[in-house]
Amino acid sequence: MRRHLNTIYVTTENAWVRKDGENLVVEAEAQELGRAPLHMLSGLICFSRAGASPAALAACAEAGICVSFLEPNGRFLARMEGARSGNVLLRRGQYRSADDGGRSVPIVRGIVAAKTANQRAVVRRALRDHGETLTDEACGALARAETRLSDVVRRVLLNDSVALLRGLEGEAAQVYFAVFTHLIRAEEFSFSVRSRRPPLDPVNALLSFLYAMLGHDCRSALEGVGLDPQVGFLHADRPGRASLALDLMEEFRPILADRLVLSLINRRQLTSRDFVIEEGGAVRLTDDARKTVLVAYQERKKDELVHPFLNEKVTLGLVPHIQAQLLARHLRGDLDGYPAFIWK
């Protein structure tokens, strides 16, 4: 079983990352902010204008540590990686499957069904845990959404067209986000519609930020087993887009990102003062709020659960790596199908 490795998030403006022996050291204004052994790391994510020494980047490449540079709101800028792992036969199998509708449809069907089922689980959890405190309007809307999401899952399992499956995934997202505001119990926050580039309210800013973190983890998981993150099944190929990483993260958006957004807001760990409105209307987190979210994200990944396919207890942060391995096994012919992850 793969070890649960750590990710360093560098959020301090103009910070510098350097190598010291077998450690990565983060410093700013001639003061050391932290250090971590290279063998305990899987990723280094730098926000804003953080930089790194050539020796640190070379050490990361050799150790298989992915280095990503992002804007303060989580928007991807650049990425550095070392020699690709895996073998050419696995990637050739991936490319052939992506071009073969008969082989790609079952994979897409599993991903869309799992994502929709996990969205439904978020709605069900809210009804179960907070149904007594919700208004009749909210309870009714959530109950109808649960029914509609169940119907989408049923239709997904009966469908054999990638184009139609993409349409059903969009329908489920529309139903889910239409009632997302009813999952928010803090009065100072509200949600009306999903806005991405840029996010136009605090909830969307949180969702986009955590989706960027999740995307990094999913891409690293795929590269770790030798798959090409650019060539997907649900998401069409597009220059510069990691389509397979987007495919993989669909199963985890409701669990790792959406539920964490709701927890941070509903537990009052974040307030409206933790967000900044920029010129043009874009909303982003403050530096302190970003650190709060990153700590909570790392803690969330430590939660344990029983994997539904392996029937083994694992941490939530390891699930993307397990799913990437299961997908690789399917593409190599070791598994008859790809068992998408359904949260229970």
Rank of each mutant, 00 (worst) to 15 (best):
H330V: 12
F47M: 04
F191N: 03
F309Y: 14
L248P: 07
V17K: 01
P198G: 01
P202C: 08
R18Q: 13
R84L: 15
G101S: 12
T271L: 05
H182S: 14
R84K: 10
Y176A: 01
V105E: 05
L331S: 06
G64Q: 05
Q174M: 07
D129N: 12
E187P: 14
P72G: 08
P339F: 04
D217T: 12
A173M: 06
R284C: 13
A186M: 02
G317L: 06
Y95G: 14
V175R: 01
S85T: 13
L326R: 01
V261K: 01
R219M: 15
F177M: 02
L260Q: 04
H330I: 09
Q119T: 02
F309T: 12
Y297N: 08
E251V: 02
V26H: 04
V261L: 05
V225S: 07
D287Q: 10
K344P: 13
L5Y: 04
M40A: 15
N73V: 05
R79Q: 13
Q230S: 13
R124W: 03
E32M: 09
P202W: 06
K291C: 15
D288Y: 01
E71K: 11
V152Q: 01
G140V: 04
N311K: 12
A163W: 00
V231Y: 00
V17N: 07
K301V: 06
V153A: 08
S48V: 02
G337P: 01
D258H: 06
Q325F: 07
K301T: 10
V162Q: 00
L234H: 06
F275N: 01
R329G: 03
A28T: 07
A205I: 03
I111E: 03
A340M: 04
P308T: 10
D274N: 10
L264C: 06
H4N: 14
R120W: 00
R18V: 14
R196I: 08
F191P: 02
L165S: 04
S97N: 08
E137I: 09
R2Y: 09
R109I: 13
L248I: 05
F180A: 02
L149T: 01
E299H: 11
R75Q: 11
H4W: 11
L90T: 10
L227E: 04
A59S: 15
D336L: 11
S272R: 11
A282L: 03
M1V: 14
A28K: 09
F275A: 02
V156H: 02
Q174K: 14
I8C: 11
A289S: 10
L318E: 08
I107H: 00
G167R: 01
S190K: 06
D201T: 04
K302Y: 07
V25K: 03
L158W: 00
N23K: 13
E188K: 02
S68E: 12
A63H: 05
S263R: 14
L335F: 09
C139D: 05
C60K: 02
G86R: 05
R332E: 15
R148L: 14
Y338M: 13
Y9A: 13
A173I: 04
L310M: 10
C46M: 15
A257W: 05
I107F: 05
L264H: 05
V25L: 11
G226K: 01
K115H: 04
A205S: 15
Q269L: 14
R284G: 11
L206Y: 00
R300S: 09
L90W: 00
A126C: 12
N87T: 12
A55Y: 05
A145P: 03
G232Y: 03
E299Y: 08
R154C: 10
S104N: 09
P239Y: 12
P106N: 08
M1D: 12
E146H: 02
R35F: 06
L89W: 00
